[in-house]
């Protein structure tokens, strides 16, 4: 196993009185793809959102335990959440391009970070679009509205936008669930390429997708981490009966 990029220790999360995560301890390896699977409401998306402190935005949330990224506890008071989220990009289920041009969508993050030199911005935009495998499709219409792109293209544009701020970790919350099989295939290929440079954590309801794209799989149920292991093992001979029942479609 590669070195752990993210380590959680006894991470427990409550929404008000309701416990959504119960003492989750996990080591997510660097530059690998880790998939979170489990039935709706099992806590996988909550856990994902804890990794970049997005749950802080919900007032009733109470978190105990630790999340270490590169050894640093991200829930320390002195942590700058904006800087943290620069390091951890996120891609959502529904693509959410800004109502701006394709170029401006990708340049947005670097601009916020103070880069205004057009030459540098152009280089960043081109590199990000290339890395998100959408450059060839948009290079001739960079100043068209991003909203005119197809769903699959919009999602890859959002990935390009994430890459433009040079994160180290990319969190993906069901990134292909609203896409057709061709676009899904492109996103999956992209994930495979991106893992060479980034640590990727993906939440998916699609078992086959988890099996295809991930190196490690974590199965959550009712806020508990039931099993975490190499994907090839989880999908051939999981240790825990519960995992087996879920992935074979016998419950959940």
């Amino acid at each position: 196993m590669k070195e752990a990029k993210i380590i959680t220790r006894d991470l427990t999360l409550h929404y008000g009185q309701k416990m959504a995560l119960n003492s989750i301890s996990m080591q997510i390896p660097e530059k690998e793809v880790t998939a979170f699977i489990g039935p709706s409401g099992c806590g996988k998306s909550t856990f994902l959102r804890s990794l970049n402190r997005m749950n802080d935005l919900i007032p009733s949330v109470k978190i105990t335990g630790e999340i270490l990224i590169d050894g640093l506890n991200i829930y320390q008071k002195k942590i700058d959440v904006v800087n943290l989220r620069k390091k951890i990009g996120m891609v959502f289920q529904k693509s959410n391009p800004f109502a701006k041009s394709i170029f401006e969508n990708v340049a947005y993050g670097p601009r916020i970070n103070g880069i205004n030199n057009l030459k540098i911005l152009t280089e960043i935009v081109e590199r990000s679009l290339k890395n998100a495998a959408i450059w060839d499709e948009v290079k001739d219409r960079m100043h068209d509205s991003a909203l005119g792109l197809s769903g699959g293209q919009q999602q890859r544009l959002c990935i390009a936008r994430t890459l433009a701020v040079e994160p180290e970790i990319i969190l993906m919350d069901e990134p292909a669930s609203a896409l057709d099989p061709i676009s899904t295939g492109k996103i999956e290929e992209l994930i495979f390429e991106l893992k060479k440079s980034y640590t990727i954590v993906i939440v998916t309801h699609n078992m086959q997708q988890a099996a295809r794209v991930s190196d490690y799989t974590a199965f959550f149920y009712l806020g508990e981490l039931i099993e975490f292991g190499k994907t090839r093992k989880i999908f051939t001979a999981p240790d825990v009966k519960h995992t087996e029942e879920y992935i074979t479609g016998r419950f959940g």
Binding site: S25, Q27, P29, E224, L225, I226, F228, K230, K233, D239
Partner: peptide, 9 residues
């Protein structure tokens, strides 16, 4: 079930 920090098996 994992009781301590889970490294992938």
């Amino acid at each position: 079930l994992p009781t301590s920090e889970a490294t992938p098996s």
